[in-house]
Simulated scan of single mutants.
Amino acid sequence: MASENELQAMSRAVTAARTVARALPNPRVGCVLLDAQGEQIAVGVHQGAGNPHAEVEALTIAGEAARGATAVVTLEPCSHTGRTGPCVDALIEAGVSRVVFAQTDPDPQARGGATRLADAGIDVEGGVLAEEAEQINVEWTFATTEGRPFVTWKYAATMDGLSAAPDGSSKWITSAEARRDVQTFRAAADAIMAGTGAVLADDPRLTVRDTEDLPLPYAQQPLRVVVGETHIPNYYRVFDRVAPTLLIQTREPDEVLTKLYEQGIKHVWLEGGPRLAGGFWNAGLVDRVIGYIAPAMLGSGRAALEGEAATLADIRPITLHDVSMVGPDIRIIGTPGRAPREEMP
């Protein structure tokens, strides 16, 4: 059973992993090394693909002091070779005596590290603060287990649910504070997606902006994804050199997600186009909703979502996880239900 020092170290490892804005397509991982007296020797964090894994970074910092130490890791150490070698090999070679991890690795290619460590004579304990650790990598875990990217749909609307005026204009419904808030969420995704109609209407960049104001260090723009069959002239801003852009000439949500998963994308930020959003919503392929509601009314215009509901029996519930004020606007975060709401008595 994990000691009090190990529990505290796992909390520190979780906190350390959260200091990374995005490690996708890899998970965010933190590692804390403890000496025989339970004192912290080193902290390692995985910064993203191509960088040392958290265990390796911590072992490098600790050097010879790692021999006989306990490694406390938020994710089961990997046992496969990707861009870097297996973490289990590094832990065995460093001579650690015990490994405590939180989340079991859901990746069939990488799992099995606990067994290999135990076979090498290292004491292993898993499942320590697993729920806390799993919250670090909700999107990565989903994509790994479901075989498709996690989809977050973001929309901005008036209090009467409209995202654009009758003439098609939509800039800006929400406040500057809300638009800055969006950048933090965008930075956590590895793809930002919009439909061709929204791109033609608004000429968006589909990038993370104001990066100097983000709460976490940020290094790489997400992939920009434009979905639809309509031609987009090459002078539109989605084709500038700020970030790579992928055109997917279909409106079938399953096909879109299959292509993105093949590209290694784990978390899609969907915005820009009620028709595209409606396609994903109707297909049950929206995994999180983030809405910004402006304290204003339009009275007529375009709805934020073009769905297929024909009657109130088609209504779909959303479980709310957060309701906050962002400047003058209301931000809601929730998870869509998978079935229509039961009829109320």
Rank of each mutant, 00 (worst) to 15 (best):
residue 242 V to E: 11
residue 46 H to I: 02
residue 232 I to E: 09
residue 205 R to H: 14
residue 216 L to G: 04
residue 266 K to D: 07
residue 108 P to L: 11
residue 294 A to W: 06
residue 226 V to W: 07
residue 61 I to S: 06
residue 42 A to M: 01
residue 317 P to S: 15
residue 89 D to C: 04
residue 5 N to C: 06
residue 224 R to M: 01
residue 188 A to S: 10
residue 332 I to Y: 02
residue 309 A to M: 07
residue 19 T to G: 11
residue 203 D to M: 02
residue 166 P to R: 11
residue 324 S to A: 12
residue 13 A to T: 00
residue 238 V to E: 04
residue 100 V to R: 04
residue 147 G to A: 05
residue 2 A to F: 00
residue 72 V to A: 03
residue 29 V to N: 11
residue 130 A to Y: 08
residue 118 A to H: 08
residue 177 E to I: 05
residue 290 I to P: 08
residue 320 L to I: 14
residue 40 Q to P: 00
residue 39 E to I: 00
residue 285 L to D: 11
residue 159 M to T: 11
residue 125 E to S: 13
residue 303 A to S: 12
residue 344 M to N: 13
residue 28 R to C: 06
residue 128 V to Q: 01
residue 144 T to R: 03
residue 204 P to T: 00
residue 285 L to K: 15
residue 77 P to F: 04
residue 311 T to S: 08
residue 128 V to Y: 01
residue 35 D to W: 01
residue 173 I to L: 14
residue 80 H to Q: 13
residue 323 V to K: 03
residue 194 A to N: 03
residue 118 A to K: 12
residue 109 Q to M: 06
residue 150 F to L: 00
residue 98 R to Y: 05
residue 293 I to A: 05
residue 27 P to R: 01
residue 107 D to G: 07
residue 95 G to E: 02
residue 289 V to D: 01
residue 69 A to D: 09
residue 72 V to K: 01
residue 247 L to W: 02
residue 65 A to D: 15
residue 345 P to C: 06
residue 305 L to M: 09
residue 101 F to C: 08
residue 178 A to M: 07
residue 126 G to S: 02
residue 332 I to L: 14
residue 181 D to P: 10
residue 265 I to C: 00
residue 216 L to N: 12
residue 37 Q to I: 01
residue 210 D to L: 15
residue 4 E to W: 03
residue 8 Q to A: 15
residue 24 L to M: 11
residue 177 E to R: 09
residue 166 P to H: 07
residue 253 P to W: 06
residue 325 M to H: 13
residue 340 P to H: 07
residue 290 I to F: 09
residue 91 L to H: 14
residue 195 G to A: 00
residue 287 D to W: 06
residue 82 G to H: 09
residue 297 M to I: 09
residue 286 V to K: 09
residue 228 G to A: 07
residue 212 E to P: 01
residue 218 Y to M: 14
residue 69 A to E: 12
residue 161 G to K: 06
residue 69 A to F: 08
residue 1 M to E: 12
residue 279 G to T: 13
residue 268 V to I: 10
